[in-house]
Design a protein around this nucleic acid. Structure first.
Lengths: 188, 188
DNA sequence: TGTACATCAGTGAACGCGCGTTCACTGATGTAC
DNA sequence: TGTACATCAGTGAACGCGCGTTCACTGATGTAC
């Protein structure tokens, strides 16, 4: 089974990306090495040829989410974007229903933060996101308000059983946030 | 070891309350029956004299948090309270640092909502909380915005490593929220 | 009042299971001669 | 060009451990006589 030079590095990257997906969808603790490797059509023993421990993978996968992907996908913040568009995409049913491809703050950060196991890269990612939001706001100080609202609305909309109530949370937060921004822009 | 009539009911209640604390502090999945019973100076075998399964305890403990305690403690919403006071207490360092005695939405609801295992009582509790907030707002529609901001700011402040950044998130959300309310009140 | 028995909340060993981790092994391919 | 050997990503059985759960048992107290 000799493979080409890049093969092992590619497998490692596949593990990281699948972990980043599953950590957000199922939780870090609920994602086992066995099921993760099985999803990639590999056996669990091979995992330790790539990582010293599950903790090392957690570190790598969180780095990947927080720094490479950028923490708030699928509502991307790279390139040209308008704040209303970003808000609409963040508070969409697609984002709510697909945590695996979404923002890491309402999922992994919430899980690890609860127990005081927050990852240092979270700080870096949060500061970067607040900076980007601030550039699109009349008052950059409001970036914390906007991001908090987005994260909280997503948490609440996912934590509720009734789909109608869940939609109402997303709609309510989006409407109120967009109105607020318009009032601030015209007022300032 | 014959006990008085109320003894078993009291033990059951103690288990529920300790679980409600630990579910918020450590997470539902990370709280084992063994450690829970040990914390109450009981042995794990006795647990099944009170509950048919861990799932039944989860149900009971969530009901306790969501309906009896009221989901958003320690920032109580019962009796007389002003919205600014409530916001200040919710976004306090005490609340951030003691999830065990705090609001269930940024902890247990986030954990269970992630995997689609939300508890039906969450809906009821959320509606009640939105109703109470709405009564203190010029525009009741803004209740979703306020609660989302509170929950999101707590999640973010707990998910960050640097204490200063964490304080900045709490302070930023509190300031922006209070300013917003004042502007709305005087404007309306 | 004194003794024998019933009650039942709580005990603790044991179960099967999935977890993270280890390790001797496999076998397709590149290299040496 | 053909054969023997080295490489090493991936394999899969096995480990100790903690999980949720079961169950025969304990023993302090209430009740019956």
């Amino acid at each position: 089974m000799r493979y080409d030079e890049e093969h092992k590095a590619k497998t490692r990257q596949r593990i990281i990306e699948e972990a980043a997906r599953r950590f957000r969808r199922d939780g870090v603790n609920a994602t086992s090495v066995q099921t993760l490797m099985k999803a990639l059509k590999l056996t669990h023993g091979g995992f330790y040829g790539h990582f010293a421990s599950k903790d090392e993978l957690i570190d790598e996968a969180l780095r990947h989410c927080l720094l490479e992907i950028g923490a708030v996908t699928p509502a991307s913040l790279t390139g040209d974007w308008s704040l209303p568009e970003f808000i609409q995409r963040y508070l969409s049913t697609v984002h709510r229903d697909e945590p695996a491809r979404g923002c890491i703050f309402p999922t992994v950060s919430a899980e690890l933060g609860q127990r005081g196991e927050a990852h240092p890269a979270t700080d870096q990612a949060l500061l970067a996101r607040l900076g980007q939001l601030g550039e699109h706001l009349p008052d950059p100080q409001d970036a914390v308000l906007v991001l908090s609202t987005l994260v909280g609305a997503l948490v609440l909309s996912r934590g509720v059983v009734d789909p109608e109530l869940s939609d109402r949370v997303l709609d309510g937060a989006r409407t109120a946030l967009l109105e607020l921004l318009e009032a601030k822009s015209s007022g300032a």
